[in-house]
Simulated assay, not measured.
Amino acid sequence: MRLKITALTLALLLLTGCAAYNDVETLLRAPQLSGESAALQKALNSYLGGSATLKYPASGDFLSPFAFGDWDGDGTNEAAVLYTADTTSSNVFLAVLEPSGEDSWHVSQTIEGLSSEVETFSAAHLRDATSQQILAGYGSAQGDRYLVVYEYDGTNLNTIISNRYSEMVLGDFTGKGDTQDLVLALPTDTEYGGVTLQLLTNVEGEFRSYQTLNLGEGSYSGCAALSAGQGRDDAMYLVMDAWSGSNSLVSDIILYDSETGFLQPYHPPGLSDPQRSTLRYHTELLSRDIDGNGTVD
C-alpha cells in the first residue's frame, strides 16, 4: 500500500513539475502577434527582407509599436510602426503602411528616427481637420530629448518639426476648434535659468512655430510638467510646473489672449502670487487631471 501511495505521490510531483515548467516556458516566450498586428509585421519583414524588432514607446497615445490613423486625410486609416532592423543603424525607424486588401498591408515609406529609444508616440490634427500628424519623442544616452513631427501626404513621409525639448503638451489653446496646438518646454540653457515655452500652431495651413514665452528667469531651473485643461468659460489653459531650486516646485497658469493672439501668464482673481501660493517640496505633486473631468488639479 505504501509503495502505491509513494508511486502516486511521485507521479503527481512529476506532473506538477511538468506543468510548472510549461508555465515558466510560456511566460518566457515572446508574445505572439495576432490579426492586424501580425499582418503588419509580416508586410514589414517582407519589405526589409529580414526580421524587424518592434520598439515600444514609453508613453503617449500609443503604448504599442503600432499606431492607426488617417495620416494623409484620404478617408482611409493607415498604420505606423516603430521598429529597428539588424541591417540598419541602431536608431528606431518609423514605417507607414497602406492597406492593400483584407488583412493585407504594404510599406509605403520609412524614415529614420533620432535615437534608439522612443519616449512618446502620439498623433494629432495639427494642419487640418482630416489628416493626422505623427509625433515621436526620442531620448538620447546623454539625456537630451527631441520631438519630431512627421507628415505623410500619401506618397512621402517628411519631418516638419524637429525640436529639442524637455516637456510637451497638445491642446486647442488658440481656439481654432478643428486643429490642435503643440506647446514645448525648451531646455534651459542660459545662466539665468527660467523656462521658455514654444507655441506651434496652424498658421494659414502651415504648422509652424508661432510664439516663444519666457517665464521665471532667475527663479526657475527647468520645467517639470505641462498639463492642459478647460476653465469655467470652456477656454483651454495651460499649467506649467517648474523647478524652483533643486527640490521644490511652483506652478504657472498660461492662457491664450485672443486680442493679442499670444499666450500670456494668467493670475486668477484674488491670487496675486501664484508661484508662492503653489510652492511645494513634495516633488511628486505634479499638476494633472486627477478625476478626469477635463480640468487640471
Rank of each mutant, 00 (worst) to 15 (best):
residue 285 L to R: 08
residue 163 N to Y: 03
residue 114 L to W: 01
residue 27 L to W: 04
residue 275 Q to T: 13
residue 183 V to W: 02
residue 143 G to R: 07
residue 37 S to E: 10
residue 262 F to I: 11
residue 55 K to F: 09
residue 49 G to W: 14
residue 283 T to L: 13
residue 215 L to Q: 14
residue 152 Y to A: 01
residue 59 S to M: 08
residue 29 R to W: 04
residue 235 A to L: 05
residue 261 G to L: 08
residue 41 Q to M: 09
residue 46 S to Y: 00
residue 273 D to W: 00
residue 137 G to Q: 01
residue 193 G to A: 14
residue 203 V to C: 10
residue 253 I to F: 11
residue 194 G to A: 06
residue 77 N to V: 00
residue 38 A to V: 04
residue 247 N to P: 07
residue 97 L to R: 02
residue 194 G to V: 12
residue 119 E to V: 10
residue 206 E to V: 15
residue 230 Q to D: 07
residue 98 E to G: 03
residue 208 R to V: 12
residue 269 P to N: 12
residue 221 S to T: 15
residue 233 D to T: 09
residue 221 S to V: 08
residue 65 P to V: 08
residue 248 S to G: 12
residue 124 A to F: 04
residue 292 G to S: 09
residue 150 Y to R: 04
residue 53 T to E: 15
residue 40 L to V: 15
residue 277 S to A: 12
residue 29 R to L: 11
residue 139 G to M: 02
residue 228 A to D: 00
residue 164 R to D: 10
residue 229 G to E: 01
residue 52 A to K: 11
residue 65 P to F: 03
residue 5 I to C: 02
residue 15 L to F: 11
residue 189 D to C: 07
residue 236 M to D: 11
residue 296 V to P: 05
residue 190 T to K: 01
residue 32 Q to E: 13
residue 127 R to K: 06
residue 60 G to D: 12
residue 174 T to I: 01
residue 8 L to N: 04
residue 124 A to P: 06
residue 129 A to H: 15
residue 231 G to N: 00
residue 242 A to M: 06
residue 122 S to T: 05
residue 147 L to S: 06
residue 222 G to S: 13
residue 151 E to Y: 05
residue 259 E to T: 12
residue 113 G to F: 05
residue 178 D to V: 14
residue 242 A to C: 02
residue 121 F to E: 06
residue 116 S to T: 11
residue 169 V to E: 03
residue 84 T to S: 13
residue 276 R to I: 01
residue 156 N to M: 11
residue 24 V to R: 07
residue 9 T to H: 01
residue 201 T to I: 02
residue 191 E to L: 14
residue 48 L to M: 04
residue 167 E to N: 04
residue 219 S to N: 14
residue 213 L to A: 09
residue 84 T to Q: 15
residue 153 D to P: 12
residue 106 H to D: 12
residue 229 G to R: 10
residue 160 I to A: 01
residue 254 I to E: 01
